[in-house]
Every structure is written in structure tokens, then in C-alpha cells.
């Protein structure tokens, strides 16, 4: 007597085989120990799966989803923020989750450089300033705000961010471990934190920053960090746009005047 296929036994047990064929299967199962045993084992498969405890959501995932949700809510509640962002930048601005996926997949194999340009627009939002005042910011106030956020080297450069005879930024080892899930928030926090005086940037770093930011119009670099991103050595560059608006670039590979691929760019909320 040939045995029943496991699929047939399973379908019979699920009530999918009825009528005369069902009767034949039932008759076979009644007299064939081996097929009856496989029926019992199918029941055990279900029972064993049911007994596996449902996993609770890990805290890290819960936090990440909360963050993304908050960003979604803010996006919905303050659409004028998005409207105030130049269209080119808005297209580049990702859903937070996209940032995560994109940044990680591109960055993971290589040392990464993250460049961040910040200016009054986004910062005033972060600091809880009245929305109406951001448009009214006069250039001197704006420049002063930039200086306040810049590394130590920015102190002596005066009020004109457009003329840069000297580097306006220092280089510091922040040691920050940037995580893909939270990089937006970490960048914002770093931007808000008081700057520490940094080393004078090397020619390569200066060239790198010029190279990275050259496509973004007038920007004033504020500071450069060496940090970690997802366990990989990373360099983080903070800068400010002259015309307002916060923006972030992610650059992979060794960064110099000729190398340093912008893998990602965003406007910070």
C-alpha cells in the first residue's frame, strides 16, 4: 500500500479534502500507522509553533518608532515648515526611515563623513523660537548665532560669513556613536550642544569640506567631529548655510578635495 503525501494528510486535516476522496483518505489513515503518525506530527507542528512565546518589541525598536511617529506628526502639524524648504532640498529630505536604510547600506562598508550645515531657520525651530522671527532674522544676528554654535576657531572671524580668509571651524574628537536609527536626532542634538574648541583643520579636511559643500551654495562650516557611525570610524562636519535652512550631507570614503562621495543629503526638521 502506498502512503499518503504529507501535503495530502495536512490538507485533509485542514478540512480541504471532502467527498469521496476525503473518505478514501480517512480510510487510509484508519489503517496505516505511518500516515496516521504523520498526521499526529502535523498536529505537533502546530502545537509547537503555538507554544513559541510571542516576542515583545525590543526597546530600541520602540524608541525608533516613537521618534519616527513624532516626526510624522510634526510633518503633518507644521506643513509650513516643509513649504519653507527649497524644493530641491525637500526632495532630498527623507522620511526618517529612509535615512536610516539609505545611510546604513551605503555607509556601512566604508569610513563615513557626515556633513551637516545648519542655520537660523531650523535652529530657531529647535530652540522654540517664535516661528515669525525666523524670517525676520537680520544677517548680523544670524552670523552671531552661527558663531555661537561654531567651534572655537569661529570666534575671531567677525560677522561676515561669506568671506572666509580663515577656516571658520575646528576639528574635535567627539567620540559620538551615531546610530542609524537615531542619526537625525543625534545630529540635531550635536548641533544644539555648545561647541568645544577644536584643532585647526588640516588642508585635506578643509578641501574635503569645500568639496562636500560646494554644491550647496554659500555655506559656513562650523565644526568637524571625528566620531563613529554604526561601529565604523566617521567624520561629522557641521556648517551653516548663508541663506538659512538646515541641511545635512553624508559623505563616504576618504574625504579630500577630489574624493568624498555625497551619499546622502537632508534638510533637518
Amino acid at each position: 500500500m502506498s502512503h499518503l503525501d504529507a501535503d495530502v494528510v495536512a490538507e485533509f486535516r485542514a478540512g480541504l479534502i471532502a467527498g469521496r476522496r476525503g473518505a478514501r483518505v480517512a480510510a487510509h489513515l484508519a489503517q496505516c500507522e505511518q500516515c496516521a503518525a504523520s498526521g499526529d506530527m502535523l498536529a505537533e507542528v502546530s502545537a509547537a509553533l503555538a507554544a513559541v512565546p510571542a516576542p515583545a518589541m525590543p526597546d530600541a525598536v520602540a524608541r525608533r518608532l516613537d521618534t519616527v511617529l513624532a516626526a510624522e506628526a510634526a510633518r503633518r502639524d507644521y506643513p509650513e515648515r516643509a513649504d519653507g524648504t527649497p524644493a530641491r532640498k525637500r526632495r532630498a529630505e527623507p522620511v526618517p526611515g529612509r535615512l536610516r536604510g539609505m545611510a546604513v547600506r551605503v555607509l556601512a562598508p566604508a569610513a563615513a563623513v557626515v556633513a551637516l550645515a545648519g542655520a537660523g531657520y531650523g535652529i530657531s525651530q529647535l530652540a522654540g523660537q517664535q516661528p515669525g522671527t525666523k524670517a525676520a532674522s537680520s544677517p548680523p544676528t544670524h552670523a552671531a548665532a552661527q558663531s555661537a554654535r561654531a567651534g572655537g576657531l569661529a570666534a575671531g572671524t567677525g560677522g561676515n560669513p561669506l568671506r572666509q580668509p580663515q577656516p571658520t571651524f575646528g576639528v574635535a574628537d567627539s567620540g559620538t556613536v551615531y546610530q542609524r536609527a537615531t542619526i537625525l536626532q543625534q545630529l540635531q542634538a550635536a548641533l544644539r550642544a555648545p561647541a568645544v574648541p577644536g584643532r585647526f583643520p588640516s588642508a585635506q579636511v578643509r578641501a574635503c569640506v569645500r568639496h562636500v559643500t560646494s554644491g550647496a551654495g554659500q555655506v559656513t562650516p562650523l565644526r568637524v567631529e571625528t566620531a563613529k557611525f554604526e561601529g565604523q570610524p566617521a567624520t561629522v562636519i557641521f556648517a551653516a548655510r548663508a541663506n538659512g535652512g538646515d541641511e545635512a550631507w553624508v559623505v563616504t570614503g576618504s574625504c579630500s578635495g577630489t574624493s568624498g562621495k555625497v551619499a546622502y543629503t537632508t534638510t533637518l526638521p
Binding site: 504529507a6 490538507e11 485542514a14 478540512g15 502535523l42 505537533e44 507542528v45 509547537a48
Partner: peptide
């Protein structure tokens, strides 16, 4: 649904 579950269970039999 029943059919997919049935085939899946059968496929998992070797690992029971």
C-alpha cells in the same frame, strides 16, 4: 489560508 497553512505544516514535518 487553510491550504497555505496545510502545505506549510507539511513542509515543516522534517523539523518536528
Amino acid at each position: 489560508v487553510k491550504s497555505r497553512c496545510a502545505r506549510a505544516r507539511a513542509r515543516l514535518l522534517p523539523y518536528v
